[in-house]
Write a protein that binds this DNA or RNA. Structure first.
Lengths: 150, 150
DNA sequence: TACTATTCGAGAATGATTATCAATTGCGGT
DNA sequence: ACCGCAATTGATAATCATTCTCGAATAGTA
């Protein structure tokens, strides 16, 4: 069985696990998010689905992503200063380091920041579902580029 | 001297400190963010400025906020599921606990989460400017409301 | 006070997101 | 395996937050 089919099945399993009705569009979108590590934008997801021979509309991409967010399967990242949201599968907790110059997003797989969730619960009385941490700065490439310009 | 004038002067000082040209609009917007703890939206800021007898346009509010963000004086929070950004003065590090039901934002003044910035720097080589942490959950009021409905 | 670069502001333009609704489809029950 | 129906899809229109434009007004400086 080829890799593509495997990840489609893995996505189907995940949908069943979360009691989300399975459709081809949802399967492809989720499998893309589960395997890609490029924090895609809406547009990238839309193109990916069509590029793989499935029909899809923008409305469906938006609806599906909202559904996955509501189920805490993915998170939304406000990285792009151009107002483009980016999406990321979030089974394994990690945080994002974002370049304010080129908008690159780097994953750091360390979940220490999650420890604050318990503190937040005690402090506020909230029932906590999730949390996310973002670091903003200049990536090594942009540091070099900008120092050369100066 | 009345409180309002004091905070306007404080805002003017802050602008000078950051070498940002002082204008009435910027002074009022910054002073509002410095003193209010309600994480206002664009619309709230716009109404506040006009309501205090200053002329302002939406474009100016957007421009000013972007300027303050670029100077790390304030941060942008993607709290409102309706796509409304919220803004917060960020001199004292703290994180936000956000209710996914009513969009309420609660401040928690604990900067432990900031410790991860050093880790991010070592891990990625980024030059780190800032970081923010958000916790998502249900506030006590919405917990009660939703359990009564069920 | 005069100069100049910067900022302001009203409205237009843009573009991402949401709404609409008829046609289609997944899926539990028979 | 088939039915029936609730849920989903998708093309398009509608909405609305944000950005752009550019002439007028203004802040800071000498």
């Amino acid at each position: 069985m080829v890799q593509e089919q495997k990840t489609l099945l893995a996505a189907a399993d995940k949908l069943k696990e979360y009691k989300i009705k399975n459709t081809p569009q949802r399967q492809v979108i989720l499998s893309y998010l589960m395997t890609s590590h490029d924090h895609p934008s809406i547009e990238m997801i839309f193109n990916y689905v069509r590029g793989n021979g499935f029909s899809v509309s923008l409305a469906t991409v938006y609806n599906t992503l909202q559904l996955l967010i509501d189920n805490n399967l993915i998170i939304e990242i406000a990285a792009d200063s151009g107002g483009h949201m980016r999406y990321d599968y979030f089974e394994v907790p990690h945080y994002h380091v974002i370049c304010v110059n080129c908008n690159k997003i780097v994953d750091v797989f360390d979940d220490k920041y999650k420890k604050n969730e318990e503190h937040a619960r005690l402090e506020t009385g909230f029932q906590v579902f999730n949390s996310q941490y973002e670091v903003y700065g200049l990536c090594p490439e942009c540091q070099k580029k900008l120092s050369e310009e100066a």
